[in-house]
């Protein structure tokens, strides 16, 4: 038989015991809910050093970029102008019909081209190039909206790469379209390295051949 404890002690223990449950629950909640109030640094260690990592801000420059944009006219390593064929898709004043000499028409090139096409082009032109990509579809819906185009959206349908006009374009012209864009399509020269743009052009040619082959019709 337990002796009689003073009430205050019993209640104190009960309250203390239940209060002790609060921190673990609070921590469990923290673990489970996204919040802008993290990360919490208890010890700073050397987490923040006076150096600039890639894309970090730097207040010393007017535009706040620590990574300086390339100065006009400067050429990065490996991006020097090679020749008109490689960099412009032009051979003797005409659109080139082959890959530049630096590259080889091979399965590897075409596979690379397919992979890059699926990354950069399929969003609008669709995986098979018929102009049925998800972005294109959605943009058409936004334009066709009953109450007028949403937020002033304007959109010219991404062309099917199997159109009469596009199908017969030489590889160099495709390369040029990818690099500089055309009419309503933005250029991808800054986003995709030169060799990859050629690989895409080669793949588009292969795609056009495969889709337009007489047997496919």
């Amino acid at each position: 038989m337990l002796p009689k404890f003073p009430k205050i002690l019993v209640y104190g223990l009960l309250v203390g015991g239940s209060l002790a449950l609060i921190p673990p629950v609070a921590f469990a909640r923290m673990r489970a809910t996204p919040s802008p109030n993290r990360p919490i640094h208890i010890f700073y260690d050397m987490d923040f050093q006076p150096k600039f990592k890639a894309q970090a801000p730097n207040p010393l420059f007017a535009d706040g970029r620590a990574m300086r944009p390339i100065a006009d006219g400067a050429v990065a390593r490996g991006e020097a102008y090679a020749d008109a064929h490689m960099d412009e898709g032009v051979v003797e004043g005409q659109w080139a019909v082959t890959l530049p000499a630096q590259m080889e028409m091979s399965t590897a090139t075409l596979e690379r081209g397919q992979q890059r096409f699926n990354i950069y082009c399929s969003a609008c032109h669709g995986y098979a190039g018929f102009g049925d990509g998800a972005v294109n579809k959605r943009a058409m819906e936004l334009v066709a909206n009953a109450a007028g185009p949403v937020n002033g959206t304007q959109w010219v349908a991404a062309k099917s790469l199997h159109d009469e006009t596009t199908r017969n374009q030489p590889m160099g012209q495709l390369f040029n379209t990818i690099t500089h864009g055309i009419r309503n399509m933005a250029g991808y020269g800054a986003q995709i390295p030169t060799q990859d743009r050629w690989a895409i052009a080669a793949y588009v040619k292969a795609l056009q051949l495969s889709q337009d082959a007489p047997s496919a019709k």
């Binding site: 993290r38 969003a123 972005v135 959605r138």
Partner: peptide
């Protein structure tokens, strides 16, 4: 670190949604 650093979700200057661009629109 799971409690102190996990689930960090700052408010971005532009309400850019990966669920829309990478999910629904299927961008790579």
């Amino acid at each position: 670190p799971k409690t102190l650093e996990g689930q960090y979700q700052p408010v971005q200057p532009v309400p850019f949604s990966h669920a829309l661009h990478a999910g629904k629109l299927g961008m790579d």
